[in-house]
């Protein structure tokens, strides 16, 4: 969502999704996560957690994160359940990249719309997310200024990896 925020602020038309089966947030212990269905408004999640243990979730950064998220969009959405098409898809974990690529195959490429899928590997913590989101913004700007993306994407990504050695990338062209 940090990347969604910075891309939106930069004027890009953005949507964001999760690829898992549910929204899983850290709980009081590792074996007791807080699980919500996709579509549950961030507001409701925020209030629920604040009621459960405001001190804990404030301290571990969950409540501030949810507060940020509810200012960006109403509720978390699931990738596999939507039918929108995009020019570029960014993922932030390899398993999400795999899930998106496989989902496009499962959909059967019926719309025939080409799409570039790019994974920027970001560790799931607030500090790394901020660095990663800036990296994605850099990449999106480079892509937006490229006239022939299909031919120049490799050099764009190569330059990106040189500039951000801690953000390894993956890329594929597929179809909606």
């Amino acid at each position: 969502m940090e990347a969604h925020k910075v891309l939106k602020e930069a004027g890009f038309n953005v949507s964001s999704f999760g690829t898992g089966s549910a929204v899983r947030l850290p709980g009081p212990s590792i074996d007791r996560p807080n699980i919500y269905e996709f579509g549950t408004p961030y507001d409701s999640i925020y209030n629920d957690l604040a009621e459960k243990d405001a001190k804990l979730y404030q301290a571990n950064g969950l409540l501030p994160m949810l507060d940020r998220n509810r200012s960006i969009k109403t509720a978390p959405q699931r990738w596999q359940d939507h039918n929108m098409a995009f020019d570029i898809v960014f993922t932030c974990e390899e398993r999400c990249f795999d899930a998106v690529c496989e989902d496009l195959v499962n959909r059967g490429e019926q719309l025939n719309l080409p799409v570039h899928i790019i994974n920027v590997e970001i560790k799931d913590n607030p500090e790394e997310a901020a660095v990663g989101a800036q990296g994605i913004l850099d990449l999106a700007k480079s892509i937006a200024t490229t006239s022939n993306l299909d031919e120049s994407i490799i050099s764009v990504l190569n330059e990106f990896e040189k500039k951000h050695p801690r953000l390894p990338v993956l890329h594929a062209v597929s179809f909606f």
């Binding site: 690829t19 995009f86 020019d87 570029i88 960014f90 993922t91 932030c92 997310a129 892509i143 937006a144």
Partner: peptide, 14 residues
């Protein structure tokens, strides 16, 4: 929660 983002149309100022 995984932070997975997509962008739609990337050109806006023409």
């Amino acid at each position: 929660m995984s932070d997975q983002e997509e962008t739609g149309a990337l050109t806006s100022s023409v």
